[in-house]
Write a protein that binds this DNA or RNA. Structure first.
Lengths: 191, 191
DNA sequence: ATTATTAGATAGTGATCAATCACTTACTAA
DNA sequence: TTAGTAAGTGATTGATCACTATCTAATAAT
């Protein structure tokens, strides 16, 4: 059973990879299945041998994208020390943003698509990521694990936006090294 | 000079309001100018008397959306006391999300649209909002104003997502009342 | 050698959409 | 009364799209 470049399992992933690129660059609704096919070096109708509809292809692309993020975070959680956990999760996220920018752009698009199947996939992805982070923070004995998880996700969302619209100053104020300690002064004097 | 329902200035805003709804609900690229026209109670070709292209209509819709947010925040900044500034900005944002959800959904969409004119409008909107918040924090003598601004925007982005995909638990961990103080313990023991 | 199966392409369809055009109606000013 | 204009529409068009139906060439099993 020779696994050459033409097995249908390879073609399937070829198409998904092409779709991630084209959807991210062009926008899901404006992107055409012909563009996806061209990027995957096959004819346009052949896409429909593997995905019965364009939406099914989008769902497969989202699945790839969320799986990558979930698997990556799980790796980090397994190997990182409690003290370095959050820093390494952030580093891992930055790696994903660098190496798989299109997958992030696709996730962002899916957040505003109102089709129920897409929303459900997006919800499930977020839920699972949040659960992994939250559980890891708890097991690392990080206090206010819920709030820390929320802030981790929030900063992630802001990074996505800043990156997508090429506005790096949006991220300014991240990680100055002693932010929390000097904020403390403020809060102790305020309340 | 009686201001009846047929002045061209009214028609223009009618069309923009309709476009905000239709674009938000259906997605900009999938939405049709016929749908916008129907919602504005005019014929489809008449849309093009006011907006030369569909993209020009989107830009006008984004302008309305960003202006509302900017004007709202400027009002708050003018009237709020330094101690209540951030809390009132948050309240104002929640009001906008409640009363103008479609405008937020449109802004979210515009973040992933790669057309240069749209990206520029989105960048300018974000820049101006950030500048207002940052300057207000500084004038209120809030320490680490840059970091606080970034966190304000970041939480806003997460709220947008949580609302758009109907996943409220994503926001869990917001405002427990003493988050920073107990986080402090952790950091002082860690570093 | 023959047949069955897989991998893929060509050709096409009905539907849809942004944008244009030609036209009407109704009001206003000289 | 006439000339001009603002407001608005129905019909159309060229392009595009998701999706289908049908064919072909190669490979593999019998």
């Amino acid at each position: 059973m020779a696994r050459d470049a033409s097995t249908s399992v390879n073609r399937r992933t070829d198409i998904i990879s092409a779709a991630i690129e084209v959807f991210a660059e062009t926008g899901y609704y404006r992107a055409t299945t012909a563009q996806v096919a061209q990027r995957a070096h096959i004819s346009q109708p052949y896409v429909f041998r593997f995905f019965s509809t364009k939406e099914a292809l989008l769902l497969a692309a989202l699945e790839v994208s969320w799986s990558r993020m979930i698997d990556s975070f799980q790796q980090v959680v397994k190997s990182a020390s409690p003290e370095r956990l959050e820093a390494e999760l952030i580093t891992e996220y930055e790696k994903i943003m660098e190496n798989h920018r299109n997958e992030i752009l696709l996730q962002m698009q899916s957040q505003t698509i109102q089709e129920e199947a897409i929303q459900e996939a997006t919800r499930n992805g977020f839920r699972e990521v949040r659960q992994i982070i939250l559980q890891a923070f708890r097991e690392a004995r990080i206090p206010q694990a819920e709030e820390r998880t929320m802030l981790f996700l929030a900063r992630g969302m802001l990074c996505n936006v800043a990156d997508a619209i090429s506005l790096p100053e949006l991220k300014e104020g991240q990680g100055d090294g002693r932010g929390l300690l000097s904020l403390m002064d403020f809060f102790m004097n305020s309340y």
